[in-house]
Design a protein around this nucleic acid. Structure first.
Length: 498
RNA sequence: GGCGCUAUGGUCAAGUGGUUAAGACGUCGGCUUCUCAGGCCGAAAUCGAGGGUUCGACUCCCUCUAGCGCUACCA
């Protein structure tokens, strides 16, 4: 790689951080950091109608949550600011180049109304032609065109500025991920708008101006931008600028529809924030996303951001779209939670407070006990922290109802014997009995009564926890309050074994 | 419709002319002498189709098919 690598992530603040955008951001970050380049964040807010309050803030917060950092951004201005397109527009940055293009005749003002445009398009479609902008000043001299402008202005029409596309050109580039791509200028659909009637530059124009001014060397973005690329290259050329390297990454698609993730799909959580709320770990999100559309050399699957950074190689970016596999994400997250359970523990206990299983105060005073409960219940079996609630709820905070199946276990001949033996053995044990003590006690009953397996364990489980399944019973017993257990046993006995 | 891109198991994917076609998720089966979870072991692919090139093709070429993307005064 050459010196001065500068890459950017350029979101528009139209919502929270989307999985697809997060991926673009992550790979740009990886590219920048791997090659000791600069990572800049630029906000593309030229569509005021679609901007949402706090969209920008939320995006940056989520990026930071994922563990990304950046060198230049609206909140961390470098020398190429400002970093919001709306502000850049106010400073006349785009206007300068629009004027230059207008002056050189490479762009012109167009006063067609949206109705005119629509009917042109309809006519073309009716004639089975590809929709294509029709240049309205064909054959006119500059002076004649200027006087047309004046006419339209007099009618109170607001112009847009369109770029005069050199129709015979073919635009080609060597894509970092897809290889050589060529697209003819006539495929872009004719002269396109570079400045909207409200004075804002359009995306395809603003990106070029900004990327050039910000000295962006590599543009890594989604596949969906391939067909924008010729438009952008023509602007670079018209302005006499060097064209950066482009890389178009395959898209993440919805497993059910097979289509590009759309914010409207409701069968899939697609905002980073939603995963965060469920208790997914940022490292896991990065890990999973980093493996979507990119593959490492070896056979390992669990990587931290900094490991990805070390290994990063743009040549291993995949060309084919990848389906978003929630199951795999869950597995990756489980791996991260197990890898450092201590770090996740505060989050796990907080989930129980959030679910009203206990008060925040109790969570504090019973911290040790709570952590043991969580460990015994088994972090191994959950995909994200929110799931700990249901794992721990019964029997630690609530008791299930006794089912018919349980009654059968209790009232069988074996059941009655085990119940009696267990009751007296349990009563005889000290309050601070260990899991080993409980285990030995149960084994002793097994030997005495010569009853084993479910017929032995289930009656004990049912009497003490109202369950026939669950985590290791001896360990659970050390965490249950003895008086409560005695009461539960007495109730069960009275109700079913009297 | 046009243009562009892509094509290895349900999913993510390794693989660059000769391999038993890695690995992971998921699924299914077995084991772990209470269950759940976890762990361990094991199973499952005519490499989109059809033609070539070659002693030999997942790998190279052609055609077809399918999927996706774009086709705005959205970004």
């Amino acid at each position: 790689m050459t010196e001065d690598i500068r890459v950017r992530y350029a979101p528009s603040p139209t919502g929270h951080l989307h999985i697809g955008n997060a991926r673009t951001a992550i790979f740009n970050w990886l590219f920048a950091r791997h090659y000791n380049g600069t990572f800049v964040i630029r906000i593309e807010d030229t569509d005021s109608a679609r901007n949402i309050a706090d969209g920008e803030k939320s995006q940056l917060e989520n990026l930071a949550w994922l563990g990304l950092d950046w060198d230049e951004s609206p909140d961390k201005p470098g020398v190429y600011g400002p970093y919001r397109q709306s502000e850049r527009n106010e400073q006349g940055i785009y206007q300068e180049f629009i004027d230059a293009l207008l002056a050189s005749g490479q762009a012109y003002k167009s006063y067609k109304t949206s109705e005119q445009l629509a009917s042109e398009r309809e006519a073309q479609q009716a004639a089975k032609q590809a929709p294509h902008y029709v240049y309205e000043y064909e054959g006119l001299t500059n002076e004649e065109r200027e006087s047309k402008y004046a006419e339209f202005e007099a009618q109170g029409l607001k112009p847009v500025v369109r770029f005069r596309v050199p129709e015979e050109q073919v635009y080609a580039w060597d894509d970092i991920v897809k290889g050589h791509i060529e697209i003819g200028a006539k495929e872009v659909g004719g002269d396109w708008v570079i400045q909207k009637a409200d004075g804002m530059p359009t995306y395809n124009f603003a990106v070029v101006v900004d990327d050039h001014l910000m000295k962006i060397s590599h543009v890594l973005r989604g596949d969906d931008h391939v067909s924008n690329t010729p438009k952008q290259i023509m602007i670079y050329e018209a302005l006499g600028w060097d064209v950066p390297a482009f890389g178009h990454m395959a898209l993440i698609i919805n497993g059910e529809t097979g289509k590009k993730l759309s914010k409207r799909d409701e069968n899939l959580l697609q905002f980073v924030e939603q995963y965060k709320e469920l208790g997914y770990q940022p490292q896991a999100m990065v890990n999973f996303i980093g493996l979507l559309g990119w593959s490492p050399k070896g056979e390992d699957e669990i990587f931290s951001l900094s490991e990805f950074k070390e290994m990063f190689d743009e040549k291993r970016l995949s060309k084919a779209n990848a389906k978003f596999d929630q199951k795999k994400l869950e597995w990756v997250n489980n791996q991260w939670m197990r890898r450092d359970t201590d770090a996740v523990m505060p989050q796990l206990t907080q989930e129980l407070v959030n679910a009203d299983l206990l008060s925040a105060d109790d969570a504090k005073t019973k911290k040790k006990w709570l952590e043991e409960v969580i460990r015994v219940a088994g972090v191994d079996g959950i995909s994200y922290t929110r799931q700990i609630v249901e794992l721990v709820r019964k029997p630690f905070f609530e008791l299930s109802d006794i089912t018919d199946e349980m009654v059968e276990y209790l009232t069988s001949e074996d059941g009655r014997q085990v119940a009696d033996a267990w009751e007296s053995a349990y009563k005889a044990l000290p309050t601070n009995a260990t899991a080993v003590d409980y285990m030995n006690t149960i084994r002793a009953i097994q030997n005495d009564l010569e009853i084993k397996g479910r017929n032995l364990w289930n009656p004990i489980r049912i009497m003490t926890t109202h369950e026939v399944q669950g985590p290791n019973l001896p360990e659970m017993l050390t965490l249950l309050d003895k008086d409560n257990v005695l009461k539960t046993m007495a109730d069960v006995k009275m109700k079913y074994l009297a």
